[in-house]
């Protein structure tokens, strides 16, 4: 299972993954529509800010923040854990194990090639964003956009790794979907997805800085709307990538211990 072999298989994997993403486009569209929660939150918070701003957030800032959240979620989203649970339960994981590339790489690639299709919604959204709030809604510093790119990659990797790690737990328990649901519920509230972390009471903020949730979506959004200076962004990026590293190790352990227990019933 060498690195070289994976690299040679890469073009084929990308092509197959793209074909699958296009084949199941109806399902893909449903996944996109299911992530409209930031738009509901946008309606709520602009209604709140109509009377008076909360902190530095006026109506404009909330619109920018939640549109960015919507865009980032389209790009970094992953549902590998649900897929793994299904495939481990019904035995179809066996088909992936037979291939000469690690199934983990396979899941990552499937996610990667579906990004262009998911972006079909995110990109027009970005244009709407620019028209709605004017170019002032997002940061103008080129350095910050560079850091934003790093934060996006980090968010994508972290979200995928969390999915793969929790998905791997399905080898040990009958199903880890419930655990993923708990993670998702915590993620919704604590990551900046439902509300900017800035709005949490001051004594809760340090805890949010340490937890992984914010680095799944909040950080790139905050950098995008210019909530951080370069120094602050660098500090948060370091924490994000530390979490990525932690989950690389966790996923590797959970997978390699778990896959030994796999028995393809039926298949």
């Amino acid at each position: 299972m060498s690195v070289q072999r994976t690299i040679t298989a890469l073009p084929t994997l990308l092509r197959v993954g793209l074909a699958e993403a296009v084949a199941y486009r109806a399902e893909m569209l449903v996944w996109i529509l299911a992530t409209t929660m930031p738009l509901v939150m946008m309606a709520l918070f602009t209604a709140v800010a109509r009377d008076a701003p909360i902190g530095r957030f006026g109506e404009q800032q909330f619109v920018a923040y939640f549109l960015c959240t919507f865009i980032v979620r389209q790009v970094v989203g992953s549902w590998a854990s649900w897929q793994m649970n299904m495939e481990i339960k019904d035995g179809t994981l066996a088909l992936r194990l037979l291939r000469p590339v690690s199934p983990l790489v396979n899941y990552a690639i499937e996610n990667l090639v579906s990004i262009p299709i998911r972006s079909l919604v995110a990109v027009p959204m970005g244009i709407v964003l620019l028209i709605a709030v004017g170019a002032g809604g997002v940061t103008h510093q080129p350095v910050l956009w560079l850091l934003w790119l790093l934060a996006m990659i980090g968010s994508w990797a972290l979200t995928l790794l969390v999915n793969l790690a929790i998905g791997s737990l399905a080898f040990f328990f009958e199903s880890s979907v419930k655990l993923m649901d708990i993670w998702t519920a915590a993620f919704f509230v604590l990551s900046g997805y439902l509300l900017p972390v800035e709005l949490f009471p001051a004594r809760m903020r340090p805890a949010l800085d340490w937890l992984p949730f914010r680095y799944q979506i909040g950080l790139p959004v905050e950098i995008m709307v210019g909530a951080h200076t370069v120094e602050a962004a660098l500090g948060l990026l370091a924490r994000q990538w530390s979490w990525v590293l932690v989950f690389v190790l966790l996923t590797e352990r959970a997978w390699s211990l778990g896959v030994k227990r796999f028995a393809a019933y039926g298949g």
Binding site: A47, V48, R50, A52, V189, L194
Partner: peptide
């Protein structure tokens, strides 16, 4: 949580 945060800042919303 979002409800508590919103009403932490003011008495009425919409």
């Amino acid at each position: 949580v979002p409800l508590l945060v919103v009403f932490g800042t003011r008495g009425t919303v919409a």
